[in-house]
Amino acid sequence: MLHVALYEPEIPPNTGNIARLCAATGSRLHLIGRLGFRLHDRALKRAGLDYWPAVDWVHHLHFADFEAAWRHTASPSSWRPPRLWVVETPAPRLYTQAEFADGDCLLFGNESQGLPASLRQRFADSLIGIPMPSGRVRSLNLATAVAIVLYDALRRIHRW
């Protein structure tokens, strides 16, 4: 299993789409900190459709709460402990260069500000990004970015 963590997400349809993606892949969804919507928001439920009962998700009030819970529930099937991959733009290395393993977590920042500098610095050795070859945009939609990295990580772990 992989974990997807969203730090203070702001847009209900993005979170709903990511929840649906997590239901489809069997990934656990972690919502961290202050949310930019209510958990019963119509747009959130509409984007997740009727898949919300199939989503394995938890809301953590603080990053420390998330980190403790994730490390406790992650069950690695490899020789190394699970790793927290910080997906941000810009990043020193591409997500295609990451060595994903079962139990790892993909951490994404919110739509308007990304992750706080303190988290980017703390996890600098696991900071990865999606290439933006045209140079015309600085980032992708959050749900799109999660889908790209999550499916590639699963493909490599399970050798699809």
Rank of each mutant, 00 (worst) to 15 (best):
H3I: 00
A5R: 05
L6Y: 02
L6V: 11
E10T: 09
P13M: 12
N14D: 12
N17Y: 03
L21Q: 13
A23C: 08
A24T: 11
A24L: 07
S27T: 14
L31S: 13
I32D: 02
G33W: 01
R34M: 04
R34T: 10
R38H: 05
L39Q: 14
H40M: 01
D41Y: 15
A43N: 12
A47E: 13
D50S: 11
Y51W: 06
Y51T: 02
A54G: 08
W57A: 07
W57Y: 06
H59N: 00
L61M: 00
H62Q: 07
A64K: 05
A68C: 11
A69D: 12
R71K: 14
P76Y: 01
S77W: 00
S78R: 09
P82C: 08
V86S: 13
V87M: 13
T89E: 11
P90V: 05
R93A: 14
Y95F: 15
G103E: 12
G103H: 11
D104K: 02
C105T: 01
L107T: 03
G109D: 04
N110H: 09
E111A: 09
G114Q: 02
P116E: 05
Q121C: 05
A124T: 03
D125W: 02
S126N: 13
S126D: 09
L127A: 08
G129V: 11
I130A: 12
I130H: 09
P131D: 03
M132S: 00
R136I: 14
R136S: 15
N141V: 03
V146H: 08
L150G: 09
Y151L: 15
A153W: 05
A153M: 10
R155G: 09
R155I: 10
I157T: 04
R159F: 10
W160K: 12
